[in-house]
Amino acid sequence: MLELITFSTLNGVLYGMLLFMMASGLTLIFSMMGVLNFAHASFYMIGAYFGFEISRRIGFWPGFIVAPLLVGAIGALVERYGLRRVHKYGHVAELLFTFGLAFIIEELVQMFWGKLPVDYRVPPSLDFVAFRLFDTTYPAYRMFMLATAVAMFVFLFLVLKRTRVGLIIQAALTHPSMVAMLGHDVPRVFMAVFGVGAALAGLAGVIAGPALVTQPSMAALLGPILFVVIVVGGLGSLAGAFVASLLIGLVQTFAVAINASLADVIGPSADIFGDLGRVTVAQIAPVIPYLLLVLVLVFRPTGLLGNRES
């Protein structure tokens, strides 16, 4: 039991931090520009594939540095030459633009790397057991992922709270036109935020690729969960995204580990629920985030920490 709790907590926090690396960019972009970027998870996927390609040719560590930078540059270009032009046609056009972009990226990835998962491996330097608790071991690579995610979180927090650019971003979240009229180049700030958001998603892909599966559907699998995270946390709220990321990470990890059904808890009287009484928590684990999404939308439309209607 103790090992289950320990490992599920570790994995849940890890998954949550990975989600936050993507949700943070997504929610910042949303509150500044009003765009729900459907292609955000695609940047995560590009990150994983770039990481794979570079690690195959040069090594994991160069990929760890270069791949997120490349993805960030692509993100900045997408904002500058794509979104900014579409912007004048309104939010629906922007939404459709990012929606189309997600499909294009998926197709491109299939063209270059095929439909099957690629062999993106944990680097040998990190391929060992970090610690052992009772009979279960915990891989060092996961600890490395966790450390990277925490470092990114601290970096993001310091930039936003302690630097002038961070202050401009915070102000532009709520009052973009006022910030511009004080003489700050808000479009350039938008481009930078979009780029950094994409780079963070790319970094998440680089480190998640070897641990999970690097395949063309990884963006489509993750994207919906990201939207759950930012809606549950409160659209536009960075703190909310953080709380919701951890919440969803932990809930999903624990749910998968719990093999109990309603019948196990309340006994034979669960028969009145029919088959539903015998469904285990683990079986409904994939649905739980969406259940949470629906409940939040019904009972707290602003999200946990947000202050605007989603």
Partner: peptide, 19 residues
């Protein structure tokens, strides 16, 4: 149109166009 979550000092600081 003050920036409500920023402090008074930070608001003034953002009024400056360059440091």
């Amino acid at each position: 149109e003050i920036f409500p979550s920023l402090t008074v000092r930070q608001n003034l600081f953002l009024g400056q166009k360059s440091t």
